[in-house]
């Protein structure tokens, strides 16, 4: 009797915990919607998304986030171009080529890279990378999209490496044996059998890495220059969606247009991250045909 009651209580407790997390997500989302959608009383969704000027405290306020979206996309694109090839190559090296001791060291190194707080990366970028970028390209300032992309590439890499490495590792050994037994070299085996077999996992790794980049705030705020203009090259300062919210939320008057606009930016970010995660999930769970 007592045992049954105990079972019942434990089960219910676990159930409540599980439901609570979903409940909080829903509440947060509803709050975001409630605060964010209010901005569309002032500005139409089209003008908000595609307006070219972000002057939230001028009178009348101009609330166009196109420069911010472009900033986020540019920095993310740059980070993807840097981190995807290096990250995937690193995953191939760890999964397939490195001797087992090197492999352990490298895996620990990747974990360590993931453990560096983003503010520290931003700080290091500010004192080392930013002056380099300034001197190498002879720019008036090193606070550019390029600097942000490079630092964010460091942040995306651990995600890409560890998930892509998992994907390669879980390719059945029999494929590899089969290829070797047909006289394939190691590289032929990797690029003709292993990579196609692991492709959905590698794509998921890339998507999750990009998801991490687009949501990153601290490092980009410190090193991208934060100028809300539509960028024309990687060597210009940009401002991202995330940095805008972080920098301006503190000074926005609660209930003002500015305040609602920042929440609306939050919704945009939420939708982007959500889409990326869902895509990654689709790749991860894609049936092996």
């Amino acid at each position: 009797m007592f045992r049954k009651a105990k079972e019942f209580i434990i089960e219910k407790l676990i159930q409540v915990c599980g439901l609570a997390s979903i409940f909080f997500v829903v509440v947060i989302f509803l709050f975001l919607l409630k605060e964010g959608l209010a901005v569309f009383k002032i500005v139409t969704p089209l003008n908000f998304l595609f307006g070219k000027s972000w002057y939230p405290i001028s009178d009348p306020a101009q609330l166009g986030i196109l420069p911010l979206i472009c900033g986020s996309l540019l920095v993310t694109l740059g980070a993807a171009i840097i981190s995807i090839p290096i990250g995937v190559a690193c995953a191939i090296y760890i999964a397939e080529i490195a001797p087992s001791k090197t492999k352990e060291v490298l895996k620990a190194g990747v974990e360590l890279l993931a453990a560096i707080p983003s503010v520290v990366l931003g700080f290091i970028g500010m004192v080392t990378l930013v002056p380099w970028v300034k001197n190498i390209f002879h720019l008036p300032t090193g606070l550019t999209a390029l600097s942000g992309s490079i630092m964010l590439a460091f942040m995306a890499m651990p995600t890409i490496v560890s998930i892509a490495e998992d994907a390669l590792y879980s390719v059945p050994k029999s494929y590899k044996e089969g290829a070797f037994a047909l006289g394939a070299t190691h590289w032929q085996t990797i690029h003709r059998v292993m990579l196609p077999a692991a492709s959905s996992g590698i794509l998921a790794a890339v998507m999750l890495g990009i998801g991490r980049v687009i949501g990153e705030t601290m490092a980009v705020m410190m090193i991208t220059g934060n100028a809300a203009v539509i960028p024309h090259s990687l060597l210009q300062p940009v401002r991202t969606l995330t940095a805008t919210i972080a920098a301006e939320m503190g000074e926005a008057v609660v209930g003002s247009e500015h305040y609602f606009a920042l929440f609306a930016i939050g919704i945009v970010l939420f939708i982007i991250s959500f889409a990326i995660n869902v895509t990654a999930d689709l790749f991860l769970h894609r049936e092996n045909r």
């Binding site: 029999s174 494929y175 089969g178 037994a181 196609p196 092996n288």
Partner: peptide, 9 residues
């Protein structure tokens, strides 16, 4: 091989 191992192609 013991288990047929065609490549996922």
């Amino acid at each position: 091989f013991q288990r047929p191992n065609p490549f996922p192609l």
